[in-house]
Design a protein around this nucleic acid. Structure first.
Lengths: 236, 236
DNA sequence: CAGCAACTTTGGACCGGGTCAATTCTTCAT
DNA sequence: ATGAAGAATTGACCCGGTCCAAAGTTGCTG
């Protein structure tokens, strides 16, 4: 997954052997991306116009749109490359493993390796992007919803495909729940990182949260919150 | 909830006794709304410019934005007035009732009375709006996500407030799940309506789906979809 | 090395959504 | 009636995004 966006910062890995044209293209894309993020971090997403980005990166406005379909993609492009992951994980899981288990284990493993997709990553650029998303309503909207809608449809299809004996409703509900819990965990991790916690320190807590959250999906809410605000009525 | 948007079509109910200025305002708002929906239905949301709506409603473009913050609000404004409902239902429920039960019963009751918020309503105008939302990506995005994000935060706060003994994680996960299942059911009902089914005929099926979906939230997915695509491995 | 073909880049014109300062009109107190 | 207060309204403007023809690069080929 070595995109030119540079979120996985291997700036110039194997591109020395490429034709000059391709190389230039990658450089230009990377320059636009870095320039844009820099300006966004400095003054805020909405306070920077595409024209400014173009000028700062020494290209024309049109060229910016040539590399990134929309202004938002300058920030969200890298993030949205993982949309098909949940569906893939379910598809490729070992026989006899439930969907919940497969997704839980995958998420726990991703946490261990500090995958940016889990939100548990304190790399400087990643943090910049997270901060931007949280500070900009339109970005936050797209980061959660588009994510969710598309991924949900893919996952529901996969669940339905795998087990045609089940009805469609259950597949849709299951997909919605599994992705909802995933998104909740990611949001929680984002908050830890934004609070300044180091990823390594936050790992144990994040793992614990993930296990408990998936357990809720697996065993249900039951009679959660059975009594409204009656003192001393707490229960598990 | 008698807004001037006119989704509940009482065009001129009790506004004869109002000061002239207010009356004119309501008339103008209603005229803009009806004109816009008409044009949208006729040619599609993206194919109608705000300038056209303004011209057709005999006002200036700026006036349209005065009544509706954005073009999307012309369609979604009425829909998004129910964002705090789930949190309210949980807050006002009878003692000893679990959150799941409260929301399930509320949703079932809303289905019975064909509340548009459940998606199970075949009124002409409501259907127009549903069709528009489904046919326009940007509207679909906002209808689901913004909806969800805001409502989710409210519900999580309410759950946390009611039972401080529980941890925040569970509250957030519970809110996410409860709203995810709600949204899934609404989407399902929308599909029935778009397929041309009559609301009255679809009611029994919708009730059944709602009961089963909430049961999943209550009791969990368990080992749902335990085996990947092994023929004859279906289980409940 | 010349030159052709394919592809980028560019500038500019244009469109639609959304904002702002200023203008016009209704309302109301004197 | 009349003048001040304040709201509704407006036209001018900005920004994101698209389209087009023209100019510039690169890479291949004779």
């Amino acid at each position: 997954m070595a995109t030119h966006h540079g979120l996985d910062l291997g700036p110039d890995r194997d591109l020395d052997a490429l034709p000059l044209r391709e190389r230039k293209k990658i450089q230009t894309g990377s320059r636009i991306f870095r320039t844009a993020i820099g300006l966004f971090v400095e003054r805020g997403f909405d306070q920077v116009s595409v024209a400014e980005i173009a000028a700062a990166a020494e290209v024309s406005k049109m060229t910016v749109f040539n590399y990134f379909p929309t202004k938002e993609d300058l920030v969200l492009g890298p993030v949205e490359q993982h949309l098909d992951e949940p569906a893939r994980v379910v598809r490729d899981r070992a026989p006899g493993t439930s969907a919940v288990t497969a997704l839980r284990e995958h998420f726990l493993a991703a946490l261990e390796r500090r995958d940016p997709a889990t939100g548990l990553n304190d790399d400087a650029v990643v943090l910049d992007v997270i901060r931007l998303i949280h500070a900009t309503p339109s970005l936050a909207l797209r980061a959660t919803s588009a994510f969710d809608r598309r991924a949900q449809s893919l996952l529901a299809d996969e669940l339905r495909r795998q087990d045609p004996a089940h009805d469609e409703l259950t597949a849709r509900v299951a997909a919605a729940q599994l992705l909802a819990v995933r998104l909740t965990l990611i949001a929680g991790n984002h908050l830890r990182m934004l609070a300044g916690e180091r990823a390594a320190d936050a790992l144990p807590g994040a793992l614990d949260e993930a296990r408990r959250a998936f357990a809720v999906v697996e065993h249900g809410l039951g009679t959660y919150c059975a009594g409204p605000a009656r003192p001393g009525a707490g229960a598990a």
